[in-house]
């Protein structure tokens, strides 16, 4: 598999699933701080696996990897319980949620960008807008704001990462998670 094909597939079919994948991990893992790491692992495993050939059903492929990875991690961490494994067996394969995830819908994306932008600090937001709307580079941004190049680079990185989280769905979930998706606490202990 060429890298280019894998990249296209990753962008087209895997990343749009980020929101569901994150939800899935969060539902099945009690330590919130691990969620981003676990997702990163799943992506890495998914890419390595795809090198032998792109899967036919990306969603099923991705969630099987996620499940296996969570089980492995849980075993290593001695966290495993029957409940956890049982949960993991029943992977959500609801076909209706499948379709609208296939692509990041433009209107929805725009809303996410807008909300994501609102969560940034004013300085980071300024920098993102100078770069994205006015096409400024690091130097021009630094001159415009009268700050150093390193500060611009650092804040660009912050904005880039925060917006990506938001746009691909994690930010929104994290925000709503407290109210709408309380993590289940079934008394599993470490």
């Amino acid at each position: 598999m060429e890298d280019r094909e894998i990249r296209d597939w990753f962008r087209r079919e895997v990343l749009p699933l980020e929101k569901s994948l994150t939800q899935f991990i969060r539902r099945n893992w009690r330590v919130e701080a691990d969620v981003a790491d676990l997702r990163h692992d799943v992506y890495e495993l998914a890419l390595s696996g795809a090198r032998k050939g792109l899967p036919h059903a990306t969603r099923a492929y991705l969630f099987v990897i996620a499940r296996n990875h969570l089980i492995n991690r849980a075993k290593r961490a001695r966290l495993v319980s029957f409940e956890l494994v049982a949960d993991l067996e029943s992977i959500d394969n609801d076909p209706s949620s499948f379709d609208h995830e296939r692509q990041l819908v433009a209107r929805d994306m725009l809303r996410r960008v807008e909300k994501g932008l609102a969560t940034l600090t004013p300085r980071v937001r300024q920098i993102v807008m100078l770069r994205k709307i006015h096409g400024f580079n690091t130097k021009e941004t630094a001159d415009e704001l009268g700050i150093g190049l390193d500060a611009v680079r650092k804040q660009t990185s912050v904005g880039m990462r925060a917006l990506t989280d938001y746009i691909l769905g994690l930010g929104e979930e994290a925000e709503r998670g407290v109210i709408a998706f309380p993590r289940r606490d079934k008394g599993k202990s470490k």
């Binding site: 990249r7 990753f10 962008r11 990343l15 980020e18 992506y43 990041l104 433009a106 994306m109 725009l110 960008v113 807008e114 994501g116 932008l117 993102v128 807008m129 994205k132 709307i133 880039m160 990462r161 917006l163 990506t164 989280d165 746009i167 691909l168």
Partner: peptide
Amino acid sequence: WRLELGWEEAGRIN
């Protein structure tokens, strides 16, 4: 690749 896509999509602020 993830960040690349996210940052591209962020261009929608235009």
